[in-house]
Design a protein around this nucleic acid. Structure first.
Lengths: 152, 152
DNA sequence: TAGATTAGTGGGAAAATTTCCCACAATCAA
DNA sequence: TTGATTGTGGGAAATTTTCCCACTAATCTA
């Protein structure tokens, strides 16, 4: 319920970068004792501001070196179609993000695959599950930035 | 160096969902003893397949409810421009991703801000740092899927 | 201003967890 | 059959978490 202050922001920032620190370390970093720090972290977790802690893997090393954004336009706009589309998207693990957008494109999908062949396979699987009138892909040539850290 | 087997994949999958489990728990989940599991996790970390562990925060609760994709075209293609653009993008914490793309758009930026006003502020800051000939934004109306979990 | 409330501090400590080591068993390839 | 790999379980020191408590400093409220 309560608002976040500067120290909380420091804690969150540190944990966004590395969730493996001990409370001792984290406390030192934000200028708080182990105990005071622990209490704040617990509150941040209970409030849901810290959603969870996860491991981030290296896409290259797992053969997912190709990042692709897929722009989707559809003529079909009934709610049933959307439900089916959402389900399909959730079941395909190569798809990391899927968004309904403003503007001229209807949906934007972010996926990670190994290569163009795999992209094509993904594309085929997708259009066989839901009908899409207009699909176009742009591949990522260079990743200038990619982070999970939110601005605080 | 070595290849990843089914058990490794199970470990990675579990840690992508929740990095807070004890080795005991994790071992039970993947059908391994605490010790065997610990050894594998250490190897996965040392090999860099597990890049790091981080806390994921709730964007809504932090006043970052608006997700936006910014399509950028530029007439300027000299390497100096790119360097400046990359630096600008890295310094702006609202920008979560920035990619050089194939296709008709040159760059794609993913950002999170509070509202349209804040988007505009971000836009102003961006174009004052680097000159962009053609910028257009699409806002996310609905998040069908958003995950950091890579397909294994 | 006095009193109450809200943090923070440091000490303490049980419990849990991590991070190894070891001996031994099972499997597989040379 | 031997050696290499990888598992198991036991053990245990070291570290960390997760509280409690008493006390203090700062702040806000009546």
């Amino acid at each position: 319920m309560n608002d976040i202050d500067t120290i909380d922001r420091k804690i969150l920032s540190a944990l966004q970068q590395d969730a493996d620190q001990s409370l001792e370390e984290l406390g030192a970093k934000v200028g708080l004792s182990r105990n005071a720090c622990w209490r704040r972290v617990r509150i941040l977790q209970d409030s849901g501001i810290i959603r969870k802690r996860v491991a981030l893997l290296d896409p290259q090393k797992l053969g997912l070196g190709l990042s692709v954004f897929i722009q989707v336009r559809t003529s079909n706009h009934d709610p049933d179609w959307l439900k089916k589309f959402a389900r399909a998207v959730k079941l395909m693990p190569e798809i990391l993000g899927a968004y309904r957008m403003t503007g001229d494109l209807d949906y934007l999908i972010h996926a990670r695959v190994n290569d163009v062949q795999d992209y094509d396979a993904l594309y085929q699987r997708l259009i066989e599950k839901v009908d899409l009138s207009d699909v176009s892909a742009s591949f990522v040539m260079e990743e200038l930035k990619e982070t999970t850290e939110l601005s605080l």
